[in-house]
Design a protein around this nucleic acid. Sequence first.
RNA 1: GGCUCGAUCGUCUAACGGCUAGGACGCGGGGCUUUCAUCCCCGCAAUCGGGGUUCGAUUCCCCGUCGAGUCACCA
Length: 397
Amino acid sequence: MIRTRFAPSPTGFLHIGGLRTAAYAYALAKHSGGKFILRIEDTDQKREIKGAREKLQGVLHKFGLRWDEHYIQSERAQTNVYKQAAQQLVEKGLAYRDLGAIRLKTPKDEKIEYHDFALKKTISWATNDIPEAVLLKSDGFPTYHLAVVVDDHEMNISHVLRAAEWIPSTPIHLLLYKYFGFKTPEIGHLTDILDPEGGKLSKRKGNVSVEQFLELGFLPEAILNFVILLGWAPKDNRELYSLDEFVKAFDPAGFQKSNPVLNQKKLDWFNGHYIRIKSDTELLQLIKPYLSEITLEIIPLIKDRLTTLVQARDLAGFFFTRPQPQRVDANHLRFAIENYDKLIKGELTEDIKNQGWKVGDFFMSLRLAICGSKITPPLTESMLILGKDETLARIKL
RNA sequence: GGCUCGAUCGUCUAACGGCUAGGACGCGGGGCUUUCAUCCCCGCAAUCGGGGUUCGAUUCCCCGUCGAGUCACCA
């Protein structure tokens, strides 16, 4: 049975690349009915951030990524498993003490290699190039290298899937598997998501945290769909996937080898798509956090116009807040007031033309007076929702 | 710099060694339309360079170039 894990360190937010890693590991396991494990790698006490773990779990849940088992390394460290493992290597002469820590011993003039199931390639190193990495820190906590090898073995992880930044430390792990006599799991490395400006996606250059995208009003479905297609593609190039559909279609053969660039325009497109396929009542609930006064009758008017949920404020805010008076042709407004009933029935077009006005100009004056913007939902429907009194009041201003 | 990985439209990508290199986003044009969108139609746009191997290279090999990652008692 395939058993995968997502092993983030709780740094306070979930990186968009981390979400992708989790989704791939989840799909890899679930595609064949395996188990997906969440392991919190918090062995660095100095970087401990309170509440980060709960926050991370909450975000994962929003995406439907549910784990079957859950471990916390700092808790496991208290059982001394890592300390004993390191001790064992020292006794076997495969590691040594150095300034209060324990370091790995690396063999001379040998070659070590593994086959990467995501990169679909065998990668090898000369053991002389492998650093004598610290295994156990002087505070008694294990480093990532020791903890990951011990835990993946004890938790029976069959496939390790992680970011490409880990490739250089893989030979250290390979050596440890060998030294401990553990079976080496299948190992796969994912591409790095690149920033449009170049280089690895970083906080500096823009949004990288999933929470941030969520706050801006991107839907989990859209973020997930977008991110799984950065670095993975099916043979038929299908683009729309729910999590379950992705799990069903998942195939490691679809992993890309070269680093993708994050293209926010595509995310926008996915988000617009997922907003549009929501029911009006679902969308109403989703928009409320951004515009609490929003009502169901307004939803159909703005649904096709939203890229993100937060935009509902700009698009529908005028329903609840009178706009600043705009400079428009007073004749247009006067004519609208005099013919209000005909206007909202949509029967005023000919009369407008007979006044010698362009229909578009006339309605733009009204639009500006009522909504305070040139970009608005359909005007007549908006007037109906506002009601005669409020509409006329705004025109009279 | 050492080590490691990578290279198809601007971006995400498809193409058992064999059609006019396909799709999507974006972009341009058009249709619909009282704005903006949505929706529909059309279009622009790519195999990094040089050598091989082969009847034939996007695809396989080598070199170069470019890009990325990593070189902590952080993960």
